[in-house]
Amino acid sequence: MSGWAETALWIVTPYLTLLIFALGLVWRFRYDRFGWTTRSSQLYEHQLLRIASPVFHFGLLFVIVGHVVGLLIPEHWTRAMGITESMYHMSALVVGAIAGTCTLAGIALLIYRRRTTGPVFMATTANDKAMYVVLTAAILAGLLTTLLTSAFGEHDYRHTVSPWFRGIFVFQPDAAAITAAPWPYRLHTAIGMLLLAIFPFTRLVHAFAAPLTYPFRPYIVYRSRSATGGPPLTRRAPRGW
């Protein structure tokens, strides 16, 4: 790949992606708070969803944790913690392969369900279809890299992709590091950037609505009418129990 293309792909695109991702989320929240939902299709079909959705999502949560650990934590940290190279790769293989396979199986079942259940298919927009293509491609390419790294020990991404990734956040992206990685890694990274870029504009935004504060609020919520668009009243809503 020629120099300028590399610069464009590994230095310009990451920032562009982050910009689109962040501004996109802000814009979507301001423009489309009403459309910010899971768009659940459980009402139409529940038997397959009951298995597919948890398998997919729990798999994905582990995959996300794996990415955070693998990309953000430098190798010398884990080594300092007494984790050897082979221990690290062993656990990455086991956790990564199980989580990745769950995610893939989950999404396969979700797509199958979406295609074969009449009402669910009818409720699938072009936007959804494009999103599924990118998401599935990202998962497939990701699984390929897991297999390569861990099963054949062919390549250690913690020397190539991870330094580049961390470099982005200190404004020193090292294009040379990532170009040293074999093509499946670069492919997965490129698709990952695409996924992030389209994220705010798809149904995936529901992930940012994850109700993390639920466990900390009182069960019963009182709200005053004035807080919901009406003119102010003298009363303030008391805190629930």
Binding site: T38, Y222, R225
Partner: peptide, 19 residues
């Protein structure tokens, strides 16, 4: 939420996320 003025229980459509 339950409205404190009259006890009517309502869904804030802008906050509902479809769980």
């Amino acid at each position: 939420y339950k409205r404190s003025e009259d006890g009517i229980v309502l869904v804030d459509q802008d906050r509902c996320r479809g769980w």
